[in-house]
Design a binder for these strands. Structure first.
Lengths: 144, 144
DNA sequence: TGTATATTGATTATCATTTTCAATTAGGAG
DNA sequence: CTCCTAATTGAAAATGATAATCAATATACA
């Protein structure tokens, strides 16, 4: 199960970096992996507080940063001043369709576009390390 | 000349919205249009202060927002916590190659990718209003 | 079990903007 | 040209999200 693979990956990261496994990190990781894909720090914090009132905002921020460092999650910024985190599925990359009306975020992947990005980069002598692509507009529901 | 077209467009916007034309707005617009394409608020402010010490940071921020509203400029966020503005060339869209080492930003445009984006959106029943695409990595210089 | 070190939560700081507000300025009416 | 009202300005304070600080606490290895 993917969830366990990520837990394992994070455990390895913790060990590799000489960090410690803590109750809070376990709780946050569990909640993060069971929640919807794109969560802002604020949403995560609120959700966690419901069951675990003792957890501090700073700890949530720090732990999410660790998830990103460990490779099991990814930071995303949609330009609204909120940092969001999404859990990554092993080496897979996807892009986003962001509805500007209801805020819904859909994902997509397109190998042809990625090949073209590579071609564009090559023509500039540029080496791609990562990319982001977001299409903003109206989702099917809001377009009606 | 493009610069004058934008000045004219901003003048019209000012009139249409019942706003006023001021010395500061003229100075900021001139500097903005003559500066390089992607400027952070901070860079703009510093550059302006060199010649016009009286201009306040708040005024620069406010005026740049007006440029964006009027359509002659566009806000961009690269996820580093700095808002950047670029002047738009009439309806033209372009994407960015961002060097994560030296910070250089190159532009590109690719009609094929845009057509594919449209196709992806269509398949989701999504209507695109705008998009952003950024490729992060090493520019030709830094890759050596 | 002891102990050095990482982690935590609360609080404070930071950083880039935004807002506030009194003083100033623009620009239409007269 | 002069008044007058509303928009604008600059300085300072406020905001909002995240990051750093620090004393208290928890973890993991010897």
């Amino acid at each position: 199960m993917k969830r366990d693979i990520k837990k394992e990956a994070f455990r390895e990261f913790i060990a590799r970096e000489g960090l410690k496994s803590t109750r809070q990190r376990d709780i946050i990781l569990d909640f993060f992996l069971s929640a919807k894909r794109h969560m802002s720090v604020e949403e995560l914090y609120r959700g966690l507080r419901a069951r675990h009132p003792g957890i501090g905002y700073a700890t949530v921020c720090r732990t999410l940063k660790l998830f990103a460092q460990s490779g099991i999650a990814h930071e995303i910024h949609f330009g609204d001043g909120q940092t969001r985190y999404e859990h990554l599925v092993e080496g897979e990359h996807h892009d986003h369709l962001v509805c500007t009306v209801c805020g819904t975020i859909a994902e997509f992947e397109n190998k042809t576009i990625e090949a073209l990005q590579k071609a564009v980069a090559d023509s500039h002598g540029f080496i791609i390390r990562s990319h982001r692509m977001e299409l903003y507009g109206l989702c099917a529901k809001c377009a009606k």
